[in-house]
Each structure stands twice: as structure tokens, then as C-alpha cells.
Design a binder for these strands. Structure first.
Length: 741
DNA sequence: ATCAGAGTGCTTTTT
DNA sequence: GCACTCTGAT
């Protein structure tokens, strides 16, 4: 067990305490992933459990993948038998096995938010409700909230106190009917149905002996169904949960901090381990983040410490607008990369819409970057279309997929046919008439079969519909054998999708074709990694991919753009937090004290992602809905102790638009390229040692100057230099790379 | 059936 | 400023 020597005493305690309930309160950067990995490895190597008896639940699939890799490294072998996954993937897997036990078809599909939105919109139409008064998104969020509280549509109807709420409850009912008729589950259903499954004692006992040791990460962000599921899974009480109350940022999604805070009440004999030593950030970053989070009133005092004393001060830049802000960020990234060609920079923002300006600036400078989240690959139209064919193949009742592709590419099936299908579906239908008839018989697919059988349609539409049905049967035959990538390829060919795009012969079609090829490659890659992967499991995986799992841009890229939420669990040597202004961060919508505290926790999460350097930016004004709006620096900036933050030394490249000459956009000036990189803390500590008042120096960016003041700082020196060209500047000696002149 | 153009409402955060 | 929907022309 020599591997345990590398752990500190608290971490080791958490690893070795295997029997009975354990609560690990892990501060940011305290090595909790390491602890969980070691714990799993320890359970296996000590013979306490076989890999198949271990269940570890993480927040994202990516985190699960990392965990798995770490465990393999420690154990010295792959452990595919160990269940390491997200709550949602776990539930999907369990339900695929046990579906009939809760009256569910094994062929259920998983509806993502776009699919859900489609269902709600159709329900609103059917109910003749104006979607301007009852917005689909609002309905969806009300439904999700209800499900998070484990309330049904009937519960919602019962407690409705306004006309609007009654309407929403009705849509909820219609939504549930639609999903059940399509044999579909939404994300929340995955959890709820699994909880329902585990209400059966036999199931509970079976899995309690199967999963002898259960671990749950990010426990502060679990919601009610996840909590119940955890209790069910850990009936044997060998449960270890890991969390940090200060990093709870998903209350809006139903997360309940009480799950973590009440752990001791739930398990009075729980052992508590506190991990307070931080291995990630410098003291400066930690002190700043701690000062900010300390402004929250409802919280337990916690002291994080590190041996990395000192560190560079946090850099703040206040830009005129979000375009100038983006240019500064690009410049700052250039600095960091020139200093360390292999550095990683995380650019974090409050909302996805902020990425555009930054992306454009990075593109202008040809700096490769990767966007995590936002418009994802698997949300592209063509990829969703391809997926819809596959989903309909697996489950013909999937109405959302049916509607998506029945006339894509165009095959003469329009409004007429569709309303005939809707009408036919509303009527009770006779006995099953085909292999493809679903048991429920109320889906659009079965309605189509009926209309054809009863010759209830005029000739031309009937022929078109029949061609579609025959085509799907052809795809089904073709898909009966071959690998997943081959099935995808055949599907796209037989459906006429590829031909349709080739005929279009436009740039857009070209890129769609490329994306589809990419999709086939992705399928190929997956089937190579996982030879036993079924088409159904493949589809499930894609539905459950999370924001952090996929992103656009090369995996190897050194600049990562993402929301602060998506950054949870990640770390970067350099972190830039953009748009730190009132209204954006904290968001305007966060007006309740509770919500404001959650924003502050988000700020804490963002700041503690940084290892060496933290840069924050704000703006004088920015565009909101295309209109300029004045903005002021966020209150969070004022909460950072003044001695830990300093203004950026940055010479803006001048006006983006030359006055009076519209259209003459100037690229940021060339001067930038001559700028010397700045250093990290492990860089030469003696820099600036020979610099004294009155000495003439040369700075790469500012040129010649005279030192007018020298102030010692933790382990660096602040120099005040009077430059010939740009006037007096305050500069950190270690970063300045000054030359004697 | 499909396209182009006009009009509208909206942006938190995500499994 | 954009993505989405609706409308009317082909």
C-alpha cells in the first residue's frame, strides 16, 4: 500500500475508512478526486471488494472518465467492472436492465432539452394556448422543478393558485402523456423512475449486495431524487460522500445543500474528514477567494491553506466595452502562452452569450481555442437528424424523432399528412397490423400504418407516406448487421440524406456533410473502444453527454472558454474571469439574498480554478440585446482585499474604429508581439534584485525608463518606473523582464 | 412545398 | 443581435 504514502494524514484517513458512513468535506483543490481514486484502488487491492462491487457517482462523464483512468493507474489494470458514472448514466443503465419492473419498455428513448421543448410546443398547440403567454421554456422549467421536488402533474394541478398555473399543470399532464406514449424519459424521469424501481425491496436487496461500497462526489449539488437514490443504494451504509458547501452552485436546478449539511443527522455515526490543505493555488489566490466567500452570511467557517506562499497579485482590467475587454483577454493569453508555450488558460464567463466577442477576438489573432458547452456538436441540426433516424429505428413510437425526419430530406409529406396522422392517433385503433406496430398503438408511426391500411389518405400523400415506411424498413434490414458506424453510414445513405446535401451544393451543405462524416468517425472511435457497444447504448451515451464532455475545437488547444458552471472541477495555470460587472455577475436575475449567495459561491468556484495567475475583467458599458448599457464593476471585485489585486499594465491598441472613418477596423497593433512574457512564481526569485532608484532600464513594451521607487512585496518587488514614452507605471519586477539600459 | 423577408421576444447557469 | 416564427410569393 505504498501508494498511500503520498497522501496527507486527512486524505489517508478518508481512504482507509471504508466501513460505515463517511463525510468528506473537501475544500477547493484539496485533492478530493485523488482521494476517491485512492479509495477505490484501496478497496480493490486490499481485497475488500472486487471492482464490480464498487459504485462511484461523479458529476460529469468526463470526471467519471478521469476517475476511471486514475484508478487504473493505481491498480495497474483497467477496471471496466467498476461502476463509475454520473447519476443519469447510472440510472439509464439500471433502467435498461430493469425497465419491465416499473412498467417501462426496454426500448425507451431519452429526450434531451430540445426534444422536451418540442413536446411542450406541440402540447401548447394542441391545447390552443398562446406560447407568448405560456412560454414553453417556462413550462419546462416548472415541470423540472416539480419533478425535482418529486411532485406529479396532479400535485401541481392541486396546488395551482392562478389560471396560468392551472394551464401549466395541464400542459404538464399532456407532456407526461406524450412521453409515455412515445416510450420516452426525460433527464428527470431517469432519476425518478430509478427511485421508483428501488422502492421495491427485492431490487434494493439485489443491488445492495452488488454495490457493496458507494461513493458520491459533489454531494452538495444533489437534488431530492438523487438523495433518495443514494439512500436506497447505500442501504448497507457503506457510503462515502464528498462535497463542499461553498461550491454549491446548482440550487436553481433543484440541488439541496441540506443533503450535505444533514448528513450527520441521517447517519449519526458518520465519520467526518475535513480536507483543508489546498494543492492548487497560490496563497494570494486562496486569500482573495476566501475573502469573497466570507461575505456569505449563512456558511460555516473554513480555512484553506497552502504551502505556496505569496504568488502574483490578481490582475484586474477595466475595459471600455466588451470588445475591448475581449482584446485585452486575447492579449493577456498571448502573454501567458509566450511565457510558457505549454500553458493552459481557462477563460470563464457567467453566460454562454459572452463567448462570442472573445471568440471573435481570438480568431482575429489566430489563437486556437476550444469552447466547452454552448452549441454542441451533438446539437447540430444534421447530427440530430441522423440521430433521429437511429432513434426511430430503435423505438418507432418516438414521435419527436418521427416528426423530425419524416420529411427530412423533403419527400412530399407535409401539413396535410401530419394533421391526418394527429387526428388518426386521437382515435382508438384496432389490433396490431405489422411487425412495427407498437404495443401502445398511439404513436404517429402506428397511426401512419393504420392510415395506409385503411386507405384513408388521397393517392399522392399516401404514396409518399408509404415510401417513407418502406424506406425505414429497408434501413432496419440494413441495420440488422454491421458495426454502429456502418449502421450510421447506411442510414444516411438509404434515407437520401447524403444525396440531399450533395445536391444542395452550398457551403452550408458542405459543412453539414463534414459534420456527418465527423459523426460517423465518432461512432467508429466509440465502437473501437467498446466493441460490445449496442446501438441503443450508443444513443444513450450521446443523450447523456454533458457540457464538459464535448466541446468544439481541438482537445489539445491551450485556451478553453466556458461558463463558470462548466469549469467546476477543472483547474488551469492561468484563469481569466470575464465580464465581472453588476448585472452579468452577479446576474440581474439573482436578486434574492439566497441567489446572491449562490452567485458568490460561483465566484469562489471560478477564482479557485486558478493555479498561478488570476485575471479579472470588467467593462464601462456593454451590449445587451443589441443596446449599449452602462455597467459598473461587480461587488465581488470590491470584496477582494485591495492589497491582493492590481490594475493590469496594458496598452490598448487604440480605437477599434478610426474616428470619422467607419469601416476602417484596425487590427490590434503589432507592438504586442514584441512584448515579453511574464513569469510564474517558480521563476527566478531574484529578478529585480539589482534594480535601485535612479537606475535606467529598458522594458520590452514600454521602452526606456527610470526607476523612481522600489517596494518590496512578499517574494517580489513592485517598481515604479517613469517611462519616456508612456509615463509612470507600476510594474512587478519578476514579470517585467527588465534590461539595464 | 419551399423560400425569402419581415417581425418578434429574449439570455442565466445544465444533467 | 440573434434565432425563431409567421407570412406571402413562387
Amino acid at each position: 500500500m505504498e501508494a498511500l504514502d503520498s497522501l496527507n494524514p486527512e486524505q489517508r484517513g478518508a481512504v482507509l475508512h471504508t466501513e460505515g458512513p463517511l463525510l468528506i468535506l473537501a475544500g477547493a483543490g484539496s485533492g478530493k478526486t485523488r482521494v476517491i481514486a485512492h479509495r477505490i484502488a484501496y478497496l480493490i487491492r486490499s481485497g475488500k471488494a472486487s471492482p464490480g462491487q464498487i459504485l462511484a457517482v461523479t458529476f460529469t462523464n468526463k470526471a467519471a472518465g478521469e476517475m476511471r483512468a486514475r484508478v487504473s493507474g493505481l491498480v495497474g489494470a483497467d477496471c471496466p467492472a467498476a461502476w463509475i458514472s454520473t447519476f443519469h448514466s447510472l440510472c439509464a443503465r439500471l433502467l435498461r436492465r430493469e425497465a419491465p419492473a416499473v412498467g417501462l419498455s426496454r426500448d425507451f428513448v431519452i429526450y434531451d432539452s430540445a426534444d422536451q421543448l418540442g413536446v411542450v410546443k406541440r402540447a401548447l398547440q394542441a391545447m390552443r394556448l398562446d406560447d407568448r403567454i405560456v412560454q414553453p421554456r417556462a413550462v419546462l422549467s416548472a415541470i423540472s422543478h416539480a419533478k425535482n421536488r418529486m411532485e406529479s402533474a396532479a400535485d401541481m394541478a392541486a396546488r395551482a393558485w392562478s389560471y396560468r398555473e392551472e394551464q401549466i399543470a395541464k400542459v404538464f399532464t399532456a407532456y407526461e402523456t406524450a412521453l409515455s406514449e412515445a416510450s420516452a424519459l426525460d433527464f428527470d424521469d431517469l432519476l425518478l423512475r430509478t427511485v421508483q424501481l428501488f422502492a421495491q425491496q427485492a431490487v434494493r436487496e439485489r443491488y445492495a449486495s452488488r454495490f457493496r461500497y458507494v461513493m458520491v462526489d459533489e454531494y452538495q449539488d444533489t437534488n431530492r431524487p438523487q438523495y433518495e437514490l443514494t439512500r436506497h443504494l447505500a442501504a448497507h451504509r457503506n457510503l462515502a460522500v464528498v462535497g463542499d458547501p461553498d461550491q454549491s452552485i446548482y440550487k436553481w436546478r433543484g440541488a439541496d445543500l441540506r443533503n450535505l449539511l444533514d448528513f450527520e443527522t441521517d447517519f449519526p455515526d458518520a465519520v467526518i474528514v475535513r480536507l483543508e490543505r489546498n494543492y492548487r493555488s497560490t496563497q494570494v489566490i486562496l486569500d482573495a477567494a476566501s475573502a469573497v466567500i466570507a461575505c456569505n452570511t449563512r456558511r460555516h467557517e473554513k480555512r484553506l491553506w497552502t504551502e505556496r506562499l505569496g504568488g502574483a497579485r490578481i490582475v484586474h482590467h477595466h475595459a471600455p466595452d466588451e470588445l475591448a475587454e475581449a482584446d485585452f483577454i486575447t492579449w493577456q493569453i498571448g502573454q501567458a502562452l509566450r511565457e510558457d508555450a505549454s500553458a493552459l488558460v481557462g477563460v470563464l464567463y457567467r453566460m454562454n452569450s459572452q463567448s462570442r466577442a472573445i471568440e471573435e477576438s481570438l480568431m482575429r489573432e489566430r489563437l486556437p481555442y476550444r469552447v466547452v458547452g454552448g452549441v454542441r456538436f451533438y446539437e447540430r441540426k444534421e447530427v440530430k437528424d441522423a440521430l433521429a433516424y437511429l432513434r426511430l429505428l430503435v423505438n418507432p413510437d418516438d414521435d419527436v424523432s418521427f416528426l423530425r425526419i419524416v420529411n427530412t430530406p423533403p419527400r412530399g409529406i407535409g401539413k396535410q399528412v401530419l394533421s391526418a396522422l394527429e387526428a388518426a392517433r386521437a382515435r382508438p385503433v384496432g389490433a396490431a397490423s405489422s411487425l412495427f406496430e407498437a404495443p401502445g398503438g398511439r404513436s404517429l408511426w402506428s397511426a401512419a400504418l393504420h392510415l395506409l391500411q385503411e386507405r384513408a389518405l388521397p393517392g399522392r400523400p399516401a404514396a409518399a407516406l408509404e415510401r417513407f415506411i418502406v424506406m425505414m424498413e429497408q434501413i432496419r434490414v440494413a441495420a440488422a448487421q454491421g458495426t454502429i458506424s456502418e449502421i450510421v453510414g447506411k442510414t444516411l445513405a438509404i434515407s437520401g440524406y447524403l444525396d440531399h446535401l450533395r445536391d444542395a451544393d452550398s457551403e452550408e451543405a458542405e459543412s453539414r456533410l463534414a459534420n456527418l462524416m465527423e459523426f460517423v468517425s465518432a461512432a467508429r472511435e466509440r465502437e473501437l473502444n467498446e466493441p460490445e457497444l449496442s446501438l441503443r447504448a450508443f444513443i444513450d451515451q450521446l443523450a447523456l453527454l454533458s457540457e464538459t464532455d464535448e466541446g468544439s475545437g481541438p482537445e489539445t488547444s491551450q485556451v478553453w472558454l466556458m461558463t463558470m458552471h462548466a469549469a467546476k472541477g477543472l483547474e488551469f495555470p492561468v484563469v481569466i474571469v470575464a465580464g465581472v460587472v453588476e448585472g452579468v455577475f452577479p446576474h440581474v436575475h439573482a436578486d434574492e439574498p439566497e441567489e446572491l449567495e449562490e452567485e458568490r459561491r460561483l465566484c469562489y468556484v471560478a477564482m479557485t480554478r486558478a493555479q498561478h495567475a488570476l485575471v479579472v475583467t470588467s467593462t464601462e458599458r456593454r451590449r445587451v440585446f443589441g443596446e449599449y448599457q452602462a455597467t459598473s464593476p461587480s461587488r465581488f471585485l470590491a470584496e477582494i482585499p485591495a492589497d491582493l489585486i492590481e490594475p493590469a499594465i496594458y496598452a490598448p491598441p487604440g480605437r477599434r474604429w478610426a474616428p470619422g472613418r467607419p469601416g476602417s477596423a484596425r487590427r490590434p497593433s503589432r507592438v504586442r508581439e514584441a512584448v515579453e512574457p511574464y513569469a510564474y512564481e517558480d521563476e527566478d526569485q531574484s529578478a529585480g534584485a539589482g534594480v535601485r532608484k535612479g537606475v535606467r532600464v529598458r522594458h520590452a513594451q514600454f521602452g526606456l525608463g527610470t526607476v523612481v521607487d522600489v517596494e518590496p512585496l512578499d517574494n517580489d518587488t513592485t517598481l515604479t518606473i517613469d517611462f519616456v514614452r508612456v509615463g509612470t507605471k507600476k510594474i512587478r519586477a519578476r514579470f517585467a523582464h527588465l534590461e539595464p539600459a
